[in-house]
Each structure stands twice: as structure tokens, then as C-alpha cells.
Design a binder for these strands. Sequence first.
DNA 1: GTCTATAAGATGATAGAC
DNA 2: GTCTATCATCTTATAGAC
Lengths: 257, 257
Amino acid sequence: MTVVRRKTAARKAAGRKTAKASVARAAAKPAKERILDAGEQLFARNGFYGVSVRDITKAAGVDVALVSYHFGGKRELFAAVFRRRAEMLNPERLGMLEQVRRNALPGVPALEDIVNAFTYPMLERSARGGAGWKSYFALVAQVNNSPEWGPVLMTEHFDPLVERFIAVMREALPGCDAREIYWGYQFLTGALTLTFAETGRIDKLSGGLCRSSDLDGVHQRLARYVAAGLRALCAGPAAAPQGKARSDMAANADACP
Amino acid sequence: MTVVRRKTAARKAAGRKTAKASVARAAAKPAKERILDAGEQLFARNGFYGVSVRDITKAAGVDVALVSYHFGGKRELFAAVFRRRAEMLNPERLGMLEQVRRNALPGVPALEDIVNAFTYPMLERSARGGAGWKSYFALVAQVNNSPEWGPVLMTEHFDPLVERFIAVMREALPGCDAREIYWGYQFLTGALTLTFAETGRIDKLSGGLCRSSDLDGVHQRLARYVAAGLRALCAGPAAAPQGKARSDMAANADACP
DNA sequence: GTCTATAAGATGATAGAC
DNA sequence: GTCTATCATCTTATAGAC
């Protein structure tokens, strides 16, 4: 009764052994790719430990043993799922960044355009790239916030790109302390990945006024929000919280009931 | 070999049965509370499915059966862990919000102070509240980004509070479309929870210049960043991304290599 | 490359002694 | 309230047939 969730979903995808083969043939995709697709979808929903190799191979309509054969094991499959689309995505993001720089010559690109080159290729694919991309970004959201996977997978697959973006941001914010930009980037990536999770929370909170799935709406807002935030950080603590809110956290402790 | 992670951590905490009892006695805490503490720590590290009831009870030095006895089951324990500190936290945040309002009379409180009332009680406890609070907020980070748990636990335990904060933000931003504020809040919560995850990613990215654990640094920056972002959203699309970046995402598609 | 069969152990839950 | 003992099931991984 308590374990229902995972099982019900997986069971119906199984069918009889003859059905499995026909499904695989109908899709006309190699087993390896079918495993990646199914793993992507299920890992995005329930995380690494929330899905079994059997769940994945049943959903893919292939045999359990093929995960070990093609990837080596469950953890390696997880890493492969994460890597696959990162490799498609990052060249595009980097290309868009360089294009923004060229368009801005001989000046410096606007902060909004830099942030947009970072977020747009992801938002666009999550919105209109199909179910696989949608799942992938939901997975990125979980990985980014995971103490176990975040430092491994995010760092490995995205940080070389991020370093380039931060270098260009520094050009656009001359005289700004680098630490402000790193923190500004961290706030950006937190906001962006929560958006990808599409948990539907904002839908309820806003009484239907906003929808989690409205990635076009995020595209309209996020770059502006982040650019303004970055500029405020670089302007220094002069514009800091007023009243009791000072820079030392402890100074605020007595303000608590 | 592949399953090592979870097992090694749990095994060493087990000990012999006599040791278990002595540990429990030495701590002088009721078993129910010990289970909550251990569950909090382990769920924060590996998520709901990444930890077994046995892992938790071994770490707590109590018997496996006590999870069912005290909570009903694993899922109910998870919910109880999440609820426990939310109930300590929210009255304080609400109190700080009302105090900010009182201090601002007869005017309207500054946006920075409102955001600060939202974030400060959490940042302060994560920084100096002890290991339990630190684990708890890392758990919140995972739950917030989980399509499975986010809509249930975040909505139930935090949204009544969030509605009050958003109402006060609207007072501070007269004439601003409510949707801008809901999105601005979503970006805030994404940035805040990623901070709580403390994955160490910003440490590597910045070459040690910034540290994930520097929550005082976040306190100095986040309210300013978010307030500036919200004001930019409310200023309307006039300040939107320049160049090719327009409001319609598809308009940007041809900008991709 | 794909499958069957199986190993070796972990999992959540509970009945019943104390 | 706490523990022992056990259930039925699921877990990852692999040896070996085809």
C-alpha cells in the first residue's frame, strides 16, 4: 500500500515478453537509446534512488541485463543520461554568447543579453524541445540541489561553460568585485533550475495567475531580474537593507520574537 | 562495489546491541526524537529513496520497528521530519514581517526589509542553529526542487506564510502586476534553497573566492539582489533585453547556431 | 546484442514476546 | 515503548545460452 507509486507505473509498461519486443521494434530505436530515454524520464520524476533498473528497462521495453551491458551499471547510466544532452546544449549556449559579444562590438554587451544567452537555449528546449528535454531539465533541477550529485555532475558538465559566461559578465560590469558576480550567478542558477522543476507550486500560490509551465513568461522576466540584481550587488552595500537589517547577521538576531 | 556509499555510512553507526542501548541512554533523548534527528540528517544527504529505514534506525541507535510504531511508516516519518522545524520557523518569520511593517509606519516597508524578514530567520539558523538545522535546510532544498514532494510539502507548510509575504510585497510595490511578484518570489525561493543545499559548487567555480557555507555573505546580498530584481520586473518590459532578445522566445530561435 | 536464470542480499512492514 | 524474528518482495548485477 505504501510502496504503490513506483510499482504501478512500472508494471503497466511491462506487458508480456512478446509485447516487449514488438514495442521495441515499433519504436525502431536502438536499445541503448531507449534506456537513456526511459531513464531520463524516470530519474527526473523520482531521482536516482527512486527508480530501479527494472523500472527503467520495463518502461524502455528492453531486458534488464542491457543496462549493465551498455553502461556498466545504474550509476553509470545516470551519468550518461546527464551527459547526453549537456553535450548537445553547451556548444549552442557558448555560440550564442559569442554572437552576443560580436553584436555588441565595439561596445560591451548588455548584461541582459549575456544572461539571456545563458538561459534561452535551455528555456527554449524545455518549452518546445519535446518531452525528453523537459524531463532532462527537471533532472538538472534535482541534481543542482543535491549534495551528492551536484558537485560531481554540475561541476563536470557545466562549469567550464559557466566560467566563460562569468568572464563576459565581468567585462559588462567593470570595477565590480568578482565575488558579487559569483554569488549573482549562484542566485541565477537557483532560480533557473527551480523553474525547470515545474512543480506547479506557483500555480497554486497565485491561484492560477501564473503557471509553472509558462517558460516564455520566465524568459521575459529572468534576464531582467538577474541583470538588475547583479547591478545592485555591484553598486555595493550602500543600497543595503534599511532599518535594522545590517550586514552582520547577528545584529538582526534581537529583532526576532 | 557499486552500492557501497549507503552501506558504509550506516554500518559503522550500528555497533552491537549493547552499544546501541548505551548510546541511546547517553544521549538521554526519547527514541522518537532520535529517529527524527537521524532521518533529518540522512534524508538531507540522500533524499527519501536514498535512505532506508534501517539506515535511520541504526544511526539513531534504536530498533527498526520503532519507525512504524511512532510514525506509521517511512513516508510519514519523512513528512514528520519536514513538519517539525517548519512549525518552529514560520511564527518567527511572520513575527519579523509584522515587526518590519510596524517599524515602517506610517510609510511602507522597504522591499529589502520584507525579503530579509523572509530569508533571515532561515539563513541565521542554517548558519548558527546547529547541525540539525543545517541538515533541515538542505532537505528543504531537495524537496523544493522535487516534482514528487515539492507540491505537497512546500505548499502545505510554507505557502500560507508566503501568501502573507506576497501581500506585503504588493503594498511595497504599488501598481505592480501581481504576476511579476509571484515570479519574483519564485526566483527568490530558487536562489535561497540552492544556497541551503551548500553543494560546494561555488567554491570550485570561484577558485575559493566564495564559499557555499558563507551564509552571512548571502544575507548581505540576497535581499538586495531580489529587491532590485522585483523592481525591474515591475518597471515593465521597457527595460527588457536589448538587441535580438525580445519578449517572444521563438523570435530568438534564429539566433542559435 | 539480446535474452533467461539466478545469485546474494536489502527493503518496508508487522506479529508477538517482554 | 521497545525488541526479536520473520514475511514477501524487490534490489543490482552477472554467468552463460543464443
